[in-house]
Design a protein around this nucleic acid. Structure first.
Lengths: 193, 193
DNA sequence: GATTTTCCATACGCCAGAGTATGGAAAATC
DNA sequence: GATTTTCCATACTCTGGCGTATGGAAAATC
């Protein structure tokens, strides 16, 4: 009944498989490209399967987004929450821009569809979570709560703006030293030494 | 032959009229909603007219985008280039975020479609133009060219991030004093006194 | 081993939007 | 005032994606 989670062996698909593939699709082509027939083709299967696992397209989207959000929240707490030194915590937050390809590509695609009914609440929660995370780091650095909140929102804006520029290819090559210099500059002006 | 540019009188439409309406549509519903039949309906007319003025949908989009870009470039030079004091020039740049509804709504919609083939080059040129504008302001403030460029890119990122947050309704009400405090904070950290 | 349940293939109907074809009215031109 | 151009309406076709209906094979259950 339950599928064997082996590779190579063609086994029956689960809803989780569809959600994973959906996120891949979103990361690559954006949420508007998340169509069930093309998705099925990518998985070497037909629609028939999909509509057995999900009631409709939005159901898949909803589930996939929730899965992504959980992953992101967990990510924030483990990878970043563990760092004690607040300055390091902030820097690591910005460094993460270049890590975790899939997760960030999905996020970038979601930002591009911020007005979508199913996407908006996700982005809202994620933003609140992340900004608060950064804000506490600033508080640990001695900022008063209000200032910390402002600075955090601003830092997060820089992050969002960076993603935007990345999508328009206005960002210097990610490996170049020019990019490194830029990152150094923004860190220097955003987190006080 | 040429239509009378009077109001009230139902006159024949021009390509310019279509472009204007297209920009309104883009500002309101995004570029993916720029469909010719709905657009025609909004103008109280039918497709037949459209395909007389344009060869296809992309032709309209292209023209509308070019028109918008020109307006934006002109806007940058007149409204902002006139300000002598560099600090004021920068501040005014950020203030403009809340001005010029239509122009900015269009820009916001374009950012959401940054990966579109026709949109990307526009955003690229506009970004380069705006960032350079800000960079020279920073240079006038005494920044060395490299630092000025970095700071400008960062400032522009803040602007883009703000637009993003605005699209996800994560921005405090535009009229509230909380918002004013936030703006003051970002200005304070972005432009040195 | 017969039956039920799980999972998927195939074949449909439906709809929105793109683009085409054609005709016709009104205005401009002669 | 006859003719040509402009500009638009109407009526199609075509495509892609959504969702449904139904049948069938394989696996699980009895």
């Amino acid at each position: 009944m339950h599928s064997i989670t082996n590779k190579k062996v063609r086994t029956t698909l689960t809803a989780k498989d569809w959600e994973r593939e959906a996120l891949e699709m979103i990361a690559g082509k954006g949420i508007s490209a998340l169509a069930v027939e093309p998705l099925a083709k990518r998985m070497g299967i037909t629609k028939g399967s999909f509509y057995w696992h999900f009631t409709n397209r939005d159901a898949l989207l909803k589930q996939a987004l929730l899965r992504w959000e959980k992953h992101d929240a967990r990510n924030l707490n483990t990878a970043l929450g563990a760092i004690a030194e607040p300055r390091e915590r902030l820097i690591s937050f910005f460094r993460r821009i270049t890590q975790e390809r899939l997760t960030h590509d999905v996020f970038s695609s979601l930002c591009a569809a911020a007005d979508h009914v199913l996407v908006e609440p996700i982005l809202e929660r994620v933003a609140k979570r992340r900004i608060n995370h950064v804000a506490t780091a600033y508080e640990d650095l001695g900022f008063e709560p209000q200032k910390a909140q402002h600075r955090a929102r601003m830092a997060y804006s820089v992050y969002l703006g960076f993603l935007q520029l990345q999508r328009q290819q206005q960002t210097p090559s990610i490996t170049s030293q020019e990019f490194e210099a830029y990152v150094e500059h923004t860190i220097a002006t955003l987190v006080p030494s």
